[in-house]
């Protein structure tokens, strides 16, 4: 531990999703004093995924929440600390540890691994915000069961939308899967299941432009993007899965961001700020998968460990 800042952590991880928790696991196992900040719930996007079937080593797949809880347990078992605090700023201090400000207080850490991930996008249409929790949902695994034998809409065309549409069929009498393009982005296997499911009806080239209801969702208005024709569907719920935006506001002014707001890092997850690493969905990359997020986290933690050793922090 540095003599200058006896209170400083060796590694602070900002974001407790797959990338962050894996980074913390590697940090803690390197016997580094490691602190994880989580703004919302640990596990990140994986905590709201019903079934993870593409993580190697789970032939039957694993429930996303179970995966997240196992990972948290594993990380805490090796001694990393977890705090539910919303980080407001990461401040490099020349020749001294980083200062990390949360809404609750300030912390110091010699290395910072930013893994704040991405948040689900909203449609930004009338009725959406007003009816959140009363039929508008961003988590089918949380809320689908409240719509037993009702008709519902799922919006989106990626893995998340298809996965959630399939899950929703356990409860809903019918699922309208509405996608603005004429093909899905989802993996071929998920698409096959969607098209084979008798409860799912796919509506391509359409967007939801209004959600209406007195107390709860009653109808959704669709517009066909090619013909301009509108169509009102009576539904009990609208589940929205239309991509994500990276939580990179903390990195603005610190590191280079691409057009989408992702941080540019090298192969070791290093930024141009010594001691600051970025991993997972927050960085520029092609594959946004749980397994690659975890891989990023491990790479970043190993790079952080090498950085700390080079600085002579915590040796002997």
């Amino acid at each position: 531990m540095s003599f200058d800042s006896p209170q400083a952590y060796d590694i602070a991880v900002v974001g407790g999703g797959g990338a962050g928790l894996t980074a913390a696991l590697y940090g803690a196992r390197a016997r580094r004093r490691t602190l994880v900040f989580e703004r919302l719930i640990t596990g990140g996007q994986i905590a709201t995924t019903e079934l993870v079937e593409n993580f190697p080593g789970f032939p039957q797949g694993i429930n996303g929440t179970d995966f997240a809880m196992n990972l948290v347990q594993q990380v805490e078992h090796f001694g990393a600390e977890l705090r539910y605090e919303d980080v407001q700023a990461i401040n490099p201090q020349h020749g001294k540890p980083f200062r990390i400000d949360t809404r609750e207080g300030s912390y110091e850490a010699h290395a910072v691994i930013a893994t704040a991930g991405a948040d689900y996008n909203k449609l930004g249409i009338p009725g959406e915000e007003e009816l959140v929790g009363r039929g508008v949902s961003y988590c089918a695994t949380c809320d689908a069961a409240f719509f037993q034998d009702e008709e519902v809409i799922v919006v989106g065309g990626g893995d998340a939308a298809c996965d959630e549409a399939l899950f929703t069929t356990r409860y809903a009498s019918k699922v309208w899967l509405v996608h603005r393009r004429e093909t899905f982005r989802a993996s071929a296997l998920l698409q096959e299941r969607v098209f084979a499911n008798p409860k799912i009806e796919v509506i391509f080239n359409s967007v939801v432009q209004r959600i209406s209801g007195e107390q709860v969702v009653e109808t959704a208005e669709l517009i066909n993007t090619e013909t301009g024709q509108t169509h009102i569907l009576p539904v009990g719920a609208v589940f929205i899965f239309i991509g994500q935006t990276p939580n990179s506001h903390l990195l603005k002014g610190l590191v280079e961001l691409d057009e989408g707001g992702h941080a540019q890092v090298d192969l070791q997850m290093c930024t141009k700020v010594p001691g600051l690493f970025v991993a997972g969905d927050l960085r520029t990359k092609a594959a946004r998968q749980l397994v690659s997020a975890c891989g990023d986290g491990a790479t970043a933690a190993l790079a952080a460990e090498a950085y700390l050793a080079k600085q002579g922090i915590g040796e002997g």
């Binding site: 605090e85 809404r103 929790g133 961003y138 988590c139 809320d143 409240f146 709860v216």
Partner: peptide, 28 residues
């Protein structure tokens, strides 16, 4: 209480509903 989404946190004071928080929010 019209719960259609969980987690939902409801706060009661003196036998009356005093606050509703739908979904997960930061601890602060």
């Amino acid at each position: 209480y019209g719960i259609r989404s969980i987690p939902s946190l409801l706060i009661f004071k003196s036998g009356e509903l005093a606050g509703t928080i739908v979904g997960f929010r930061p601890k602060s």
